[in-house]
Amino acid sequence: MALDGLAAGLIGISASIAIGATAIAAAVAEKSIGTAAIGALVEKEESFGKGLILTVIPETLVIFGLVVAILLINLIGAH
């Protein structure tokens, strides 16, 4: 069954929300962690590795968003 234009459009919007919202969420989380990590780094330079790890942890959110977005976009192609 072919999707009509409206359905395809809504799926497209959903995909963009999936990736956009997760990107914002990751950014908000990374902002706080990054600030704290820089603070720790000033005190103790050796904590760079741990600081980096903590800062990039929320990035996975965007990857989830991307996977969901790809699966959604795939729906348009599949029908």
Partner: peptide, 12 residues
């Protein structure tokens, strides 16, 4: 499982 998915960044 989120660890596996995290490697999706290699593509992204």
């Amino acid at each position: 499982f989120t660890n596996f998915l995290s490697y999706g960044r290699l593509m992204a």
